[in-house]
Design a protein around this nucleic acid. Sequence first.
DNA 1: CTGCAGGTATTAACAATGTTAAATCACGAA
DNA 2: TTCGTGATTTAACATTGTTAATACCTGCAG
Lengths: 215, 215
Amino acid sequence: MATGISGSTIHPPDLRQALVAAAAELAAESGSAEISLRAVARRAGVSEAAPYYYFADKAALLAAVAVEGFARLDQAQAAAMAAAGPHPGQRLAALGVAYLRFAVEQPHYFGLMFRAAVQRPADRYPDVEAVAGRVFDRLVEATRAARQAAGHDDADADGAALVAWAAMHGLARLWLDGPASREASPRRLEQLLAGAVQALAGVALAEPDNPDGAL
Amino acid sequence: MATGISGSTIHPPDLRQALVAAAAELAAESGSAEISLRAVARRAGVSEAAPYYYFADKAALLAAVAVEGFARLDQAQAAAMAAAGPHPGQRLAALGVAYLRFAVEQPHYFGLMFRAAVQRPADRYPDVEAVAGRVFDRLVEATRAARQAAGHDDADADGAALVAWAAMHGLARLWLDGPASREASPRRLEQLLAGAVQALAGVALAEPDNPDGAL
DNA sequence: CTGCAGGTATTAACAATGTTAAATCACGAA
DNA sequence: TTCGTGATTTAACATTGTTAATACCTGCAG
């Protein structure tokens, strides 16, 4: 019952949360998503096997960090939407820029969110999927609004949103993995992304009922 | 002088190439890019320290596999272009579909190509960059042709190509990492991508000389 | 034929990691 | 106090990346 929020007795240091925080710290310091479970334990000031009481394995700990990462991204995107104007296309662009900026500024979180966390279909992490789903839902809604404003009242908002997500995600990954960082600056990537998502909002995509998608 | 193609004496088994092949095999079997250097040596039938005569470290071996992966992608894209029609937009779409299909069908290669290979700016791998550059060059050319056919004779072909690459890469990664594979099939992703790249070809993007990019 | 030099590979070892089983500790309930 | 159970540590194992030292050729000089 240690995983519950309120047990019969509370343990003040709350090791589980401390471990997640230590993992996030180490990832931030190294700038990478590759951290050692033992180093996390040492940072938290506990024995090297202590994490196994709270997490099934290393991937489960990283998934917990990924959940926090998605929550922070969600927060950043909410702030970006609040600061954006009323034009649906610009709001979608703001969402994308926030996504890209988050990836560039917090590469450790971004890496963790998509590496060991969401991966193989056997053992998934429902917490990660839930919070990631919220981020995607916001994107679907913004995409639907932008496309509707552009005259596309298609039922395939999910497909258009997925393509928009891909544009954001692709630019982010190409930057983080090297190729794009030798071609352009983050500032320039943001401009390209803003133009791209607004372009995608204003064009007809293949309909799911029309498998041969003319365009 | 062991790295040269022809030394004074040839060593018939050609261990270096055998190690690269063994690594590709193991990656293909596990479907993942995470392989053990010792396992590679065992597969190649040599001692576990033998690879260190030909490769500085594990990353260097993986970079060699990445080079072969990029070469295969290049080949697949060349075939797709040869089979595609004359319409520049459709040719660009064919390039993207080939990229996505390669990623889905050969995830081990795709993962290796962007993981330890191209990464950190300190120690890069010129071979990987060279062959990756050829793939990107082809994309730039196809994008320039498609945009020119659509009436956009912009000098910023690189930016447009980078966005197109991002769309391909993003869909591929979202599929491989989970999110997209729960939303759509590869077939559907290909349709979405074909529509997206043609949309990007037909729209105005932010010009590099116009930092505030109106659209 | 002998021996030696150099490229090639093996052996052995080290530190670090993920993981598990067993032992220990702390502390409230009976 | 004693017991029991949640929480943590200790100790161990297998595996990994990596390196230094050593052995194995094989061709050539003497």
